[in-house]
Amino acid sequence: MGEAGAFVAELNDLQRLLDEFTKHGYTVYGPIVKGKSWVFSKVSSIRELDLNYTRTILPPKKLLHPVKNRIFDFKLNDGFEVFESCNVKNIVIFGIHPCDLRAIEKLDEFFSQHPEDVCYEARRKRTLIVGLTCNAVDEKCFCNSLGTGPEASTGFDILITQISDGFFLVEVGSSKGLDILKTLDLAEAKPEHFEAKRKHIEHLKSSFTKTADFEGLATLAKDKLDHKIWVETAERCLSCGNCSMVCPVCYCFDLYDSLDLTLKEGVRIMELDSCQLLEYAEVALGGNFRKERSQRLRHWLLCKFGAAGGSTYTSCIGCGRCIVYCPANIDLTEIAHVLKGG
């Protein structure tokens, strides 16, 4: 990134960018309004997008690590035949906020660990990421406290920032991004445009009302496995799994087989799973090492504080989704506060 790799654009230029993606065989997904919420959905026009969105229900992970995904088809004969079936197409995810960009970086790092999840890798390789600096923050946002926003410096092919009404700074994050942008003949950005962005970021930073302090919690929380906060919070927790389903870094999944009615053919399915569900940790003969709701809630919170098996790959990026979608108003920043002796 730098001034050499930055342009300015108006809304119709962004439309041209979308058209360029389509011309190159990409399907474009972007944030659109759904009732009172937003979702990443297929779009063809820039006007379908709501560039003022706060957060989508499901994070962009739904396009890279789908909620349900056939990993192979199989046929049963004398033995079996397996047919790999990870379904990959070229997509652009347009308008991802900085916190979600950071989440995708974490998923990338996680799934590329040996042995690589080849389906994830294949999807990721054919995905272009267009970041969007937030236009505003709301009372559930706290990326600023975690250093995962509101400014993105990595994790995108192109980054768009609205610097004044209908006028955008378009920064390049990769050669792929540059190749596409070059075809648009956009004017190069000038220092004043970067200055405008800097001011916008400053303004964003000053508008956060929610703060979180997770510093050192990965160790601290594990020293407080017996803290009463776990049990107390679990009294409210519904174990509905919303928190982990909407979390942009929660990757846990189930694998199961589904046979068709001939009982000779079927599919193995990878499906998003949640550690909040009773069945998640059940072992043979019904044993369960996280049978108590408080254990499951604690496990998820430890995970978000970076103290579970996902380590920092699954630690919180401050998007606020789990807080918005918790029917019991459980707020991990409040729990962090209590654990830190607040």
Binding site: K36, S37, V67, K68, S274, Y325, P327
Partner: peptide, 29 residues
């Protein structure tokens, strides 16, 4: 499936009727 409807709701990315609309949705149980 023994888990709650909320999980399937997320699969379909439905708006949350309980948290977003304050409607009496029995999904979580």
């Amino acid at each position: 499936r023994q888990h709650p409807v909320c999980i399937e709701c997320k699969f379909y990315e439905n708006e949350c009727l309980l948290t977003t609309y304050k409607q009496a949705c029995m999904g979580p149980v």
